[in-house]
Design a protein around this nucleic acid. Structure first.
Lengths: 204, 204
DNA sequence: GCAGAACATGTCACCTAGTGTCGAGTAGTA
DNA sequence: TACTACTCGACACTAGGTGACATGTTCTGC
């Protein structure tokens, strides 16, 4: 009924493994760190490591929410009269702000962004929830948004986010991430339509 | 001086391995096909397979040019007075048309799109040449395009391409890919600026 | 045509990520 | 106390990928 001791210890162990792993990744790189090393440093076996994380990559993602669970939820909370594009903008803005608040999350993000295999994994995860986000978007505006346009908006939004993140990394973390995101969203906003009018995209 | 027999046989062997691999992938799925199987079916050793392809994934990419080498080149050929967005549109349009012409390339694309690990790999490859494309774009319009905007345009263009491809797959291959791509590019075109005016992005 | 370099291939040994299984110990419960 | 559920280590195994070595084949200069 209550939390249960086992669940609590399990989460605590998980968090500790992630912390140890992050430290090793930062020190000697992701690829040059073996699971065995992490496990030993955390005081357990390789086998047990995999009982806490399905893959080595997942240890790097602990702490950062890349599942989009939150995005979908936040999207449903936005006012209905808001354009889809603006909703996406605001939701990603919030997400970025939340990430930026945690020092460890920023470190994870930096590691991810500088490791090819991890970046690939991000895309994989994203594709997973992309459908859900697109659907949530379509639910909000009743009928006024077809699947294709919704998909396009979501893809464009992640493109904006990626570009902003990339530029921020290029600046060495000094640039204003939110301003970059705003600029990206401003430049990329869909022509018209996509707002509320059901059929208005005739201008090939 | 001439082609050299060795290079020719090497390319022939490579192509044959790829063909065998494609067949096995299509028949039993990418993940359920081992390198050993492919190698044996092609009449060589696992070790030799890896002398032709750096990874198992790469065997699935033979035949499809995802390196963007061509994109960069084609971009430099576009008329200078064309807007960056339109150039990207045209170049990707050509690329898609070229792919569509080859039956095998379409098969590869279908396989890739339906296999998570391969999709991830596409993104990885894309990130690799994204910088080069962005740079080519910036070279064309002398000074009128900053790195951030160029990156954004390239990212947005791939978003358009992805969305079109996805919709096309969703239609079971019946939809008109080019029309979808056109529609995506039309909806996503950058507000203004990005054309030639050096400084005009003041409207937060 | 031949000697030697350059190259291709198979074999073997090895590393790492990841999984199945089993047996011992430990926490939670009646 | 006895039963159950969960956790962990130990062992073995598969699969992708690499390095080293030996053998044969092709190319090149003479």
């Amino acid at each position: 009924m209550t939390e249960g001791l086992r669940d609590r210890t399990r989460r605590a162990v998980r968090a500790e493994i992630a912390e140890v792993a992050l430290g090793l990744f930062a020190a000697q790189g992701f690829d040059d760190t073996t699971v065995d090393q992490i496990a030993r440093a955390a005081g357990l076996t390789k086998r047990s490591f995999f009982r806490y994380f399905p893959t080595k990559e997942d240890a790097a993602f602990a702490g950062v929410d890349v599942t989009g669970e939150h995005v979908v939820h936040a999207l449903r909370e936005r006012p209905v009269d808001e354009t889809p594009w603006r909703s996406l903008h605001q939701v990603l803005r919030d997400w970025q702000q939340r990430i930026h608040a945690s020092e460890q999350a920023v470190a994870s993000l930096r590691l991810i962004e500088s490791t090819p295999s991890l970046r690939a994994r991000v895309h994989e995860k994203r594709e997973h929830w992309r459908g859900a986000v697109s659907e949530a978007l379509r639910d909000r505006s009743d009928g006024g948004l077809d699947a294709f346009t919704a998909d396009l908006l979501v893809n464009a939004a992640t493109a904006a986010l990626d570009t902003a993140t990339r530029e921020w990394l290029r600046s060495g973390g000094t640039a204003d991430r939110l301003a970059l995101l705003d600029r990206a969203f401003a430049l990329l906003g869909p022509k018209e339509a996509a707002g509320a009018g059901p059929s208005r995209n005739g201008r090939q």
